[in-house]
Nucleic acid binder design. Structure first.
Lengths: 187, 187
DNA sequence: ACCTGAACACCGTTCAAGT
DNA sequence: ACCTGAACACCGTTCAAGT
């Protein structure tokens, strides 16, 4: 997509490199000087493309937002699966893979950047609603589904941020968790 | 405790001011220049007390660690309460009060500073074990207690970090959550 | 022991000048 | 249109000198 073997740089060349840095070394690693060195240009080049560091960070955030939105819409096909499978897919997604390091940085970032905050909320909301709908389909009350779906999503976020403070859940744990979350309410 | 009406500064004067800045404006607000201005000294003074910025940040972290440890040991008296009450206390603590802003910054910080990471783990572990023990007392199996306690703690951390992505839980929600978490396991 | 004041390197930012 | 090169302000850091 961004082949750009040409001598001149595009905005994507900058943001792409920056996102890579973000994942590997955190926000602190994003320095104009360093990027210029790695991309083989001088700082003037940077300032031709971007008004300032803030604008650049905004562009990085924008790129991440687009990628995340795409990833989410890719998950829409889950609607075909039976409810329990959908919950399992979300639980695994929350715990297993993905560049949580980026998401963690972006969540911190969202404090300052409203646009990032919106996408973060969208992502959380997406998972929440998917799980909630599945629980409703399984026959839970509205209140029950809301509570349990919220619990799962918050736990997922917490898991991403608590860097292994507590023992990692096993595959068995996940199964038990799903059983627990979808268990019948007691009066 | 740190009256210090004297003209000379102590280490606590610096860390105290820095912790205040941390809470109000985040880690980014901790600048040597700014602290010097606010404390009415020059940068040389700072460098007499601290080797460099990293050492200063470590001192701030140290102070926060001490305060947090103290706060945790203050919670030990909860052992007198009946199990459900203990769980309620933890749930409310996780959701309700406290300077989550500091904790969020510190959790990010823990990535670089092992000492901070240790205290964060201690804090998480403390809550986890308290809830787990309460669930065991209520007659849950070991595995069950582990799963549910972990779920609550992770949800608490997630709640602290997800800045109101999802609707805030009401007092009713908390009660339902406790009921749910302490409900009997189904075979 | 605790602090000042001046210096230096580094980084973000600007801008006139080049192709 | 895209980039260089030199300049400047700001911040972290050092250190000789003051009390």
């Amino acid at each position: 997509m961004t082949a750009s073997a040409s001598s001149r740089l595009s905005i994507d060349d900058w943001t792409e490199r920056a996102l890579a840095l973000l994942m590997d070394e955190g926000v602190g690693a994003i320095k104009i000087n360093r990027l210029c060195r790695e991309l083989g240009v001088t700082k003037g080049s940077f300032y031709w493309h971007f008004a300032d560091l803030d604008a650049f960070l905004a562009a990085i955030a924008e790129k991440w937002c687009a990628e995340t939105r795409e990833a989410l819409s890719g998950l829409s096909e889950l609607h075909a699966l039976p409810p329990l499978e959908r919950i399992r897919a979300m639980a695994l997604r929350l715990i297993d893979d993905r560049s949580w390091s980026v998401e963690r940085a972006l969540r911190e970032w969202a404090k300052d950047d409203a646009k990032v905050a919106v996408v973060i909320v969208e992502a959380d909301q997406f998972v929440f609603e998917l799980v909630q709908a599945a629980l409703l389909e399984l026959g839970h009350s509205a209140q029950d589904a809301r509570l349990r779906a919220g619990l799962l999503v918050y736990a997922g976020i917490g898991f991403a941020h608590g860097q292994a403070s507590l023992p990692q859940p096993t595959a068995d744990d996940i199964e038990n968790l799903i059983t627990f979350l979808s268990s019948e309410a007691q009066p």
